[in-house]
Nucleic acid binder design. Structure first.
Lengths: 261, 261
DNA sequence: GCAAAGTGTTGCATATAGCGCAACTATGTT
DNA sequence: AACATAGTTGCGCTATATGCAACACTTTGC
């Protein structure tokens, strides 16, 4: 046990809990993060782990359908079991069904892309989108994680939370993604107050360059935010008129959805 | 180490590979299988495992967003990370996008529920469905696993595979789900030949009682089956006329989809 | 043609890391 | 109040995952 490598990102405290499972999950995420199918060696390199471990872990994941290997190349992709589990879960989530008509209406009226993102306690995950007529795709990519401080959906939700919770979530430093990302805590606080008053949030090129979004939060019966709906567009489509026209529609839709939960 | 319990369903051979990971995955599936949120003790009982292990494993899964706990009750549900991964994956799968218009057309024309199921090497997983006007839901539940021998989608796909592969997949005994399930190997073989000729498969009350489906397989460029599309309905809606009307539509849709892959 | 480099799987021995146990806190039930 | 049920955590033991090395195979180069 001389050179264990172990870049071990788990900083100081050494969280308790099964760490082999932790590595397996990281492995899954790594597979997911890669655009094209990946081989065992490639994965072992990216994770700084021994090939043999990766190979064995993948074998188990594959037996369970969480990853699957390309029949020809032997490389790995995510597996269908994941889809199966996710589908079963989403099916139980009434909010998805509920959102469809609103998203379709929004997409039609705005002629842009509308989307639903679910709050997971740390950020908003895009789960559903409706492309407007002639709108560009790759704007609200399903499955993408929207950071809380610099996306319209994220901030719309933050604005509904008590300030100590907000502090806990955003942490000490606000990560910068573009030249326009909010990175100042005071500015963020003011922005959140403003959102609470207006009922919606606008974000322009803060997370993804050249993309602008308008979002409003959806609340459950206990007034806790659970999701946000948004309309997104190329930044150059955006202007004050557009905002004035779309924002009330989005707010209204979010209100109605909240009421029906 | 006196009483290890370990009902250990892994029969004879003792497959190699990380078994703690295996248990964690089983845990995930158990959470998924339960209709409503489940507690730690309940889970430990269902899996015949000690509470402490389950508790720790769940903690890790939760940190990673694979399960999430209800804020009030503390019980567990599947987490959004699963949705995130699955979405990213499905987004890459052209077949999903491709299928939508066909499914909508089929649902409209048939006035029943149409669905897309993906082949995972062992069975077909429902991933997309379009409810026809006035059709009942809970018919082609998303995420559900369709066994190969007794569902329309499963058999439509089996019929496209070489017979030795089929033998490998179905195994020795054909599990019975209802009084109408095919359980005889010879009958199955004849049925598969017939499907190969007709180009589609019909299944009535073989897997789920009182549900009838008509399905056709979708093939990739190398003529390997990757999915099936189906129209499903309450068994009492089904008759020879319906079959004669719908089957050609389904087969045509499957052909067109195959061509576009 | 044979090296040489790269990829993936498996057996074995070691020590790491997960497990069972039991003590403990926190809720809810008679 | 007492009791039952749910959930978490520290500790010691050993079951188990890991690293290593040898092997099988494919691809690349000269």
């Amino acid at each position: 046990m001389v050179k264990n490598a172990a870049p071990a990102d788990l900083s100081s405290k050494a969280l308790q809990g099964p760490s082999s499972l932790q590595r397996a999950l990281d492995l899954l995420k790594t597979v997911a993060a890669s655009e094209s199918p990946v081989g065992v060696n490639e994965l072992s390199r990216r994770m700084g782990q021994h090939v043999s471990s990766v190979s064995r872990t993948l074998a188990t994941l594959e037996r369970n359908g969480f990853v699957s290997r390309d029949t020809d190349t032997g490389r790995f992709t995510l597996g269908l079991e994941l889809v199966s589990l996710a589908r079963k879960h989403l099916n139980d989530l009434d909010i998805l069904r509920l959102s469809r008509p609103y998203l379709e209406q929004l997409a039609e009226d705005s002629r842009e892309t509308s989307s639903l993102s679910l709050w997971n306690g740390k950020g908003a995950i895009n789960v559903e989108q409706v492309l407007g007529p002639g709108s560009i795709k790759h704007i609200a990519v399903p499955g993408r994680f929207n950071p809380p401080h610099c996306t319209a959906t994220g901030r719309a939700i933050l604005a509904c939370l008590p300030s100590d919770t907000v502090a806990e979530i955003v942490g000490d430093s606000l990560e910068r993604f573009t030249a326009h990302t909010i990175t100042d805590h005071d500015a963020l606080r003011r922005e959140l107050t403003s959102i609470a008053e207006k009922g919606y949030c606008v974000s322009i090129s803060e997370f993804i360059s050249e993309v602008a979004s308008i979002a409003a939060a959806v609340l459950d019966r206990k007034q806790r935010p659970v999701a946000a709906i948004a309309v997104s567009m190329p930044a150059f489509h955006f202007n004050a008129e557009i905002e004035a026209r779309l924002a009330p529609m989005i707010v209204a839709a979010a209100r109605e959805m909240s009421a029906k939960l």
